[in-house]
Write a protein that binds this DNA or RNA. Structure first.
Lengths: 207, 207
DNA sequence: GCTATAATGGACACAGTGTTTATTAATGGT
DNA sequence: ACCATTAATAAACACTGTGTCCATTATAGC
């Protein structure tokens, strides 16, 4: 993390800008926002904005990267889990703790993340998010051999990452009615059993 | 479909605008495009643009909706497939014909669709695309009973739709090396067996 | 060829951008 | 409590793009 800014004025201004960004993105999406409008709503001089950010794109990227960094930290806890533990969690219908923490964090920052992942959001944030997920999965998938796989590994990873993302999006859009733990469990079950079986379509699995 | 425009000038102008939109989106994404630039590159008077579209947002939406309509047509063919046929395809490792046709269509329009689904694209297009997929899946899932499902049906659908989308995105981004048929097969296999089994993680399935 | 109309070139007021300057006000260190 | 430092302000700047006119030209369909 960067050295903390000392001046309270900087912290205050930055918080005002970020909060107003969240509000305005909820209303009209990133496209529709102008620096003019944002600074007016934040009750800040327009020139002050340019003291902190190059342009509105820069503001968005910095805000996004902060979130991605936090998520990256949370997911890196997956490295500490041994293959034996992985099997244990799956066979006991118990979600991984770091996945629960991921949903906890998303819930804490749901306002901004929801708009970023919504129809008026930023597709490059989706790409960033899928990328951290991909890295996490890649580390965990080192142990399995390619010969045993039914499909190309890169497609499998793309499939799973996107599915994760979709679940997160649906959870956010439907108002986060389920607890982080419940959502993690849903995710685990579909992943282990597969969509077909999770839907109750297949009694036996004779691929 | 709307009554066909008769005047060749209209067709020509529209084609010029749409083609240039595709080109520019590839270069700099929708955000960075200006009507000024687009009409200059298309060698069209700027005023002419406003004869056809309200603004650049309108242009994007009309272009997107055309694609969504085509895809919707292709996917509606899924209704004609009986439950018996569904089982047949799955158990014979044979993808649905309409899914192959979907990938065929995407390949034919890959230039525009790729940018729309890419990091500089339009998140609302993703939403539209997932929505047609959702409708298709919903029709096919009428036959299965909720009691047998391991997870809430809306989450399962969100999961699968997103996974479809992710596979399409990865296929486009990696240069469409696989044939539409091969991709459809990959999709079918992961869906039926599930990510865990497709990865070769689980020998037996004791959920 | 004649009529309808699409496309053009040029102008308009307006809104937003990003930068600069001099000035005011708040902050942290001592 | 003071003061040097520096963040924030107000006002102006040139510039780019927008959306909407208008009169004029060129092209299409019959």
């Amino acid at each position: 993390m960067p050295e903390k800014p000392v001046d309270r004025r900087i912290i205050r201004t930055n918080r005002l800008i970020r909060d107003t960004l969240t509000e305005l993105m909820k209303e009209k999406g990133f496209e529709g926002i102008t620096v003019n409008e944002l600074t007016a709503k934040a009750d800040i001089n327009r020139g002050t904005f340019y003291l902190h950010y190059r342009d509105k794109q820069d503001l968005l990227e910095q805000s996004e990267d902060e979130i991605i960094n936090e998520i990256s930290k949370i997911l890196s806890a997956s490295q500490k889990i041994s293959p034996e533990e992985t099997l244990h969690y799956g066979s006991h219908d118990e979600p991984f703790p770091f996945i629960i923490k991921l949903f906890d964090y998303i819930k804490d920052n749901s306002s901004f993340i929801k708009t970023l992942l919504g129809p008026k959001g930023d597709p490059s944030f989706q790409v960033k998010l899928k990328e951290v997920l991909r890295k996490t999965l890649l580390k965990k998938s080192h142990q399995l051999r390619k010969e045993e796989m039914m499909v190309p590994p890169d497609y499998l990873i793309a499939y799973v990452c996107s599915a994760y993302l979709g679940l997160i999006q649906h959870w956010l859009e439907s108002g986060m009615k389920e607890s982080p733990r419940d959502i993690s469990l849903i995710l685990l079950r579909i992943n282990l059993s597969g969509p077909g079986k999770a839907a109750g379509l297949l009694n036996t699995s004779k691929s």
